[in-house]
Design a protein around this nucleic acid. Structure first.
Lengths: 251, 251
DNA sequence: TTTGCATTCTTTGTACACAAAAGCATAATC
DNA sequence: GATTATGCTTTTGTGTACAAAGAATGCAAA
């Protein structure tokens, strides 16, 4: 209980905000990152007081961060019961993927029209970082960077509502991957990301969309959503009843 | 300053929540309704203290409601500067409409597959209410009910992320209509809504999507986004600089 | 032993007080 | 007379105390 971070150092990268972080941005980013990197398992209870102590801020800040996360369906906010890390069911996962296909298609088409060379080079840089993460075995960072790639692509498409929706979808997708990805098949999406950028730079809409749809298929096929989801499914079904306050920060 | 509602009576309809309202739901719904019905003009400053006094709750509740509205891009939350009713620019309006076309197409296709007869009858009931509002000259309620129709349709489609995105888009669309609709052409969408329900009930996907797309065209064509947006545009451009604390509750 | 109830304890919900930041007006100086 | 600086006011940001709602535990009765 008495382990506490020195008051809010690491700004993390909150996406793009120039002012890299008011306090709640920082808390938000930390919790989100912890969820993505599976240091916080689905179903884990997120006590306001405990988090406040850990981050050295009051419950007010924590509450705002949790509220944002809840709006993106990454945590579940139960009235009078507090927040838990969301445990998407198989059906919810399917719905997220359906929406993502729709959005990614639109984003790709818009990006072919609007993405600047600067933006495409930024995207390439992100893919390199993603590849480095996987090659040094940091799966959590890899998943996070892969998500940030798709978010950056949405920004390059230049449609604000789509960006906002995509942010929510990417967050949920990351959670789903963390929960359902079948073990050892490494999540090596960086190659497909690179090809996608090339097709966009060539302004080849048909090819770009085709690559994106295949990319979605590949992500999909790595998950246990369809067949063997029996045991995992059972776990997912009951995980919101079970309370396992496994705050797996190093003991 | 000393006019105050008796502490939070009218629950409004917050959408579908069984427990029809914690305090912030009620405040949220009231402010949202006021914006939709143009009792709060774009650019209007939303002071936390004033609203708290009006609704008889503390700033904490107001702040949460404003935060939700900001997440839906209905109000703009400027750090240390407070909240104002959003003033979507022409470009932002175009982006919202682009996203809406995409989402409405998907929703229509899903609704053809999944909507139950009960849901379709509920939708018909909503359209009747919408028609009644317009026929008794209540344009604000009409716009709101029209938006709620599209939201209900999204729920009938059975995809949670789409519902959430649609909620945000509908809110923004209502704001855009309030800001840009060219005067006297009454917003009589209820007829198209009825035809749409019929096509969905007939499970005629092609027809339903076609109707929906034409419906979008019609909404679009009633707005001043394309040509004559000069003066209105100027107003929109500067409304975030000007401060006009026109809290148009009856003085 | 098990089940139902009551009490206690933990955790969230709300209000309020204080601190800090931004805006405004006044005044002084160039 | 215009412009800038400074302090004054208003409004938001944050922390904290208190209230209320759930959950857990223990005791009693069947």
């Amino acid at each position: 209980m008495n382990e506490q971070l020195q008051p809010l150092k690491k700004p993390v990268r909150t996406g793009k905000a120039g002012r890299s972080g008011t306090q709640d941005d920082i808390v938000y980013a930390h919790i989100f990152e912890a969820i993505l990197e599976q240091r916080l398992a689905p179903g884990t209870k997120l006590s306001e007081e405990a988090l406040g102590e850990i981050f050295g801020v009051s419950r007010t800040i924590i509450r705002r961060a949790l509220s944002r996360l809840a709006h993106e369906s990454v945590v579940l906010l139960r009235p009078n019961r507090g927040a838990v890390v969301a445990s998407p069911t198989v059906e919810e996962a399917r719905q997220v993927f359906f929406s993502r296909r729709m959005v990614e298609r639109a984003i790709t088409e818009l990006a072919v029209e609007h993405a600047t060379l600067d933006q495409l080079n930024e995207l390439r840089q992100m893919v390199r970082e993603e590849r480095d993460s996987f090659s040094r075995g940091d799966r959590g960072a890899g998943i996070r960077l892969s998500g940030e790639f798709h978010l950056k692509l949405a920004e390059a498409a230049g449609n604000a509502p789509l960006v906002s929706f995509q942010r929510s979808l990417v967050s949920q997708t990351s959670l789903i991957i963390a929960q359902y990805e079948s073990g050892n098949r490494s999540h090596c999406s960086y190659d497909e990301h690179m090809q996608l950028i090339d097709a966009i730079e060539a302004r080849d809409a048909e090819q770009a969309v085709s690559l994106m749809m295949h990319h979605m298929d590949h992500i999909d096929s790595k998950l246990n959503l369809d067949e063997e989801s029996a045991s995992d499914d059972l776990h997912a079904v009951f995980s919101h009843l079970l309370k396992k306050p496994k705050v797996s920060a190093k003991g």
